[in-house]
Every structure is written in C-alpha cells, then in structure tokens.
Simulated assay, not measured.
Amino acid sequence: MGMSGYGGGSGYAAGQPPKSKKRPAWLVGGLTVLSFVALLYVIEIWDNITGHRLDDNGIRPLESDGLWGIVFAPMLHSNWDHLIANTVPALVLGFLMTLAGLSRFIYATAIVWILGGLGTWLIGNIGAHCPYVGVRCETNHIGASGLIFGWLAFLIVFGFFTRKVWEIVVGVIVLFVYGGVLLGVLPGTPGVSWQGHLCGAVAGVVAAYLLSKPERAARERRKTPANPYLTS
C-alpha cells in the first residue's frame, strides 16, 4: 500500500516537491541509440511487407527529387543482411558517440546525416557504370553505413580536437577496432556505396571540428596571457 507524505513517510519536507532522480547519461544514450536501431528494424519489416517500395526513396545523385533521399536513405536497407551488417556498428559507435554528450550526439548526427547525404547526392554517380560498355548507370544510395562512417570518423578525431585524454583513448580504441572499415571509402566493391561512406566520413570530421569549438576556444584563452594594463 502506498503512503502519503504525512507523518514522516516521505524523505522531503512538507510543501517541497520530491527531487527527481536523474537517469545516468550512459543509460539515456544507450536507450536513444537502441531506439534508433529498433526503428530501422520496424522500417525494414514494413519495407518487406510492401515489396521493398520504400527503397526507391534513396539518394539519387543529381536528380532534384533524389534530394529527398538525403532524409530517408539512412533508414532504408536493401535486405535483412544489409541491415544486420549495420546493426552492431550502429549500436557500438552510436553509444560511444553519446558519451561525448547527448546534445553533441544529436548535432553530430544531424551534420553527418545532412552533409554526408548532400555529398553523396553530388558525387554518387562517379564510377557507376552499367554492365554495358560506355553506359553510365543512375544509382540509388540507401543504408545507414554513411551515418556509421560519420560516427566512426567523428570518434577517431574528436579527442584530438578537444585534447581530452579519455576522448583520445576512445578514438584510438575505435581506430584499432574499426579502422580497417575505413577502406570502405575506396571504390572497388560492386553494389557498395563508397561515395556514401566517403561523404559520411568527411562529414564526421567536419562535425568533430565544429562541435569541439568550446574546448578549442578555452585552449586558446589559456594560451593568451592576461593584459595587466587596463584602459578607460
């Protein structure tokens, strides 16, 4: 049976609201990333039910209506194997991203999502050729891997911008574990959007630089000696 706040049954003074328990940042970050990945699975289930019609909404380079793909492409996958391959990196790297702060995670994700997608829209047809000699194919880029490459690049370089030891350590560990994945920014594997990987990684570096501005500014202030002379 529940008890009211009278007669010493509560841990706070009469007339004062109870202090809300703040959830640990790692828990909030973990739930945020887990929810995003769960959403990807819900979307893929619906995509399978509707005959993969959603996949037509990817990034189609240099086409005006293909710009909408910048919004939708990271949430679409060609099949279950494609989504499963992206699941573990998305969970691990996404969670590590939230450790730099949930607001930074959101801003960084938005930068990578938009800037990386725009870059893919601009260069996505480079190197794309049909089986027929001399014929260029139009491409349709989908998948969360561009976003994942952005997170990966962000984590690797962010610590070197902020000069915080633990963020440098995270970057080194991520580079050691996932560094080989960066080869995916190079052309060579048919059916793989190296353009999306490359643009996502570049956008991740840009996001890391922009979002490290407070630490870089504080470092510059520490380098600048105070002026002992005051003027009026």
Rank of each mutant, 00 (worst) to 15 (best):
V165I: 10
P214Q: 05
I84P: 05
R23Q: 12
I111M: 06
V205G: 06
V205E: 03
G117M: 03
L230Q: 15
M3G: 09
W46C: 13
L210Y: 08
S35L: 12
D81V: 11
R216I: 07
T189F: 05
L34H: 07
A13R: 15
T98N: 09
I43C: 09
T139K: 04
P187I: 02
A153M: 10
T139M: 03
A201C: 02
V192K: 13
S212C: 02
V169R: 12
L91M: 12
G127Q: 04
R222P: 06
H129C: 05
L147F: 00
G146Q: 09
L230F: 14
L115T: 00
A208F: 00
V133L: 11
G9R: 15
L230E: 14
G15S: 06
L31F: 09
E215N: 11
C130N: 12
I84Y: 09
T162M: 04
E44W: 06
Y229F: 14
I126P: 05
L83G: 06
I168H: 09
S145I: 00
M75R: 08
P228W: 03
K22M: 09
K19W: 07
G150L: 00
M75G: 11
I106M: 13
F95E: 04
Y6E: 12
S193W: 01
G184C: 05
V172D: 07
E63M: 10
G146I: 01
L99D: 03
V181K: 06
S145F: 04
P131A: 11
L91W: 02
V169W: 10
G58I: 01
W151T: 00
L93C: 05
L76E: 07
T32V: 06
P190C: 02
